[in-house]
Write a protein that binds this DNA or RNA. Structure first.
Lengths: 308, 308
DNA sequence: AGATATCCATAACCATATCCTATCAAAAAT
DNA sequence: ATTTTTGATAGGATATGGTTATGGATATCT
């Protein structure tokens, strides 16, 4: 007989007998008949190929090795109990404090779509939003100051679990009078890295935008670096160059409407994949799952589900 | 359905499916048919009241909570594996280095009875014997420098497991000419603490001998204190007083025969209980068990089995 | 000492869980 | 449209874990 055949109940049996020092009482405690318990204890002993209990005298007595086995069995049971805890926690997710990090180029444009559904579905959640750069947010996630993070893939680090949420295409943002504002459909090959306006270092969007440019090597680092997409928007409006915007940052109506053109790419559009990130170890999985479901159910327009 | 009904095999199943991302392959790996595995996975999911796997697409995909469950399941399996290790270790006990501590008033008299059987039964054991006082030996046991200790009960400290081995009665050792050498049978009430010769402080035998004396309070501390039983033997032979000897230290034949009398007590003889002590946590239980069995099988004369 | 009580193991039997083979239904690939 | 892949389902054999009744060994009582 193999050890895999052991039931958690079997381990409870030997733990109970060890605790009670008495098969009869242990049987009552476990809610089974004494013969059933005896048989199961024998099964465990057979599985392990050893005697756990010394039944010679009136008192049941643990074998030396048996004591160790029982101790280990208790440990196994505690760890198995964690399984139920995990499952239980999943049943009341997003209740209480939840600290969510969102990258700065996403938060202001995505959260408006989520806040109302969140309030409706999880009224007793207390949401704390933290905006920042990917690295900083992941740091805070790692150290437990955040419960989950919304960021763009790829996420480095083995201690995190991620779930892709949606693909957010990039749009070209050009001054109204620019050549690229009129071409039938811009494509990435038309972009010149040295005409591109970029966010400051640390924004993942900056690197992603550079990746889109065909001749990355020619780019020189001395351009002005914007702090936010809104700054960037104004810089483009003032004619300093063009840039890439994630779809959610493309406004439906815009005060700068006359000055800017937001143009989708033709063919396979460049873009970024937004994912939810949480700690591998910990009990945020239930929350993550609920959040994933909610975001998927409330996908904003202009983004595509990541799971085809 | 209760979580206790889960088999370790069930946990292997979900771990395997999670690893393979494929029910069929997982089934082969687990050595069962695919329907059996499917059913068991469903059973686990039902037990926990949650979905572990997302079966929608071609790829099997872990639920967020499912990933946590599987991780925890793997932990449970590892801990369960320790159970087998413990049982396995028991099957080849006392092989390799074994460091045994023995109290000074026992070692020289007991070990001669054990060394030959040990060599015969466990030829590949390398025994290191350490003689000392109880406290020092227990310190070394606690810190891992010893694997087990033979000492007299009671043993204080929650981190140890003990097994009573035998009762060793005390004998009265008197000079040949002394009154007590001739009385029909000495009894503890006849002893006077201030006539008793004692070992130096730290020997448990010293305290036990004092406990035997009826009027403990009258005793004054200014007597000479012997370093070993052999010194004590000579002191008694020289007429300085009498003392108590543990049975094993009573010689069959003695060079000092003419000078000394070893007298058993009448009625319920005072004595000490010798036990084996080992660490609660650790894997010495198998060794302990073997040693216990061997000592019980080779009990010296003059001692009584501790388990009636 | 003999009777009694206690306690674990065994026996006989039953309900159910588990596993197998064969088959189905849905999705993906051709 | 057809084939392939893959997990779920169906039906039947077997193993497992449970029950009550009983036995045998050992302490306890009178």
């Amino acid at each position: 007989m193999d050890i895999s055949a052991l039931t958690l109940r079997n381990l409870e049996y030997i733990a109970s007998v060890a605790e009670q020092g008495h098969f009869g009482r242990a049987a009552v405690l476990c809610g089974v008949s004494q013969p059933a318990l005896s048989a199961q204890v024998q099964k465990v002993e057979e599985c392990l190929g050893m005697r756990i209990f010394e039944r010679s005298r009136r008192k049941i007595h643990l074998t030396a090795t048996g004591a160790e086995v029982v101790e280990q069995a208790r440990l196994v049971l505690r760890e198995a109990g964690r399984l139920v805890e995990i499952a239980e926690q999943r049943k009341r997710p997003l209740s209480g404090l939840f600290r969510l990090g969102v990258i700065a180029t996403l938060g202001p444009y995505l959260m408006p779509y989520l806040l109302k559904p969140l309030r409706e579905k999880h009224p007793d959640m207390e949401l704390v939003l933290v905006e920042g750069l990917t690295d900083s947010l992941l740091d805070q996630l790692h150290s437990g100051r955040l419960d989950a993070v919304l960021a763009a893939l790829p996420i480095k680090g083995n201690s995190f679990l991620t779930e892709e949420l949606f693909l957010e295409p990039f749009y070209l943002v050009v001054p109204a009078g620019h050549t690229l504002a009129k071409a039938p459909n811009p494509s990435p090959e038309m972009l010149a890295a040295d005409e591109m306006l970029l966010l400051e270092d640390g924004h993942c969007l900056r690197d992603q935008a550079l990746d889109v440019c065909p001749a990355e090597g020619t780019w020189q680092q001395n351009r002005y670096q914007a702090t936010s997409l809104e700054t960037l928007r104004h810089m483009v409006a003032s004619g300093a160059g063009y840039t890439l915007f994630p779809a959610l940052a493309v406004p439906g109506s815009d005060k700068l409407k006359g000055l800017l053109r937001y143009r989708p790419f033709n063919g396979k559009a460049p873009g970024r994949t937004i994912a939810l990130v949480w700690r591998r170890s910990g009990s945020a999985a239930g929350d993550a799952e609920a959040l994933i479901a909610l975001i998927r159910k409330n996908l904003p327009p202009k983004v595509k589900s990541a799971k085809p």
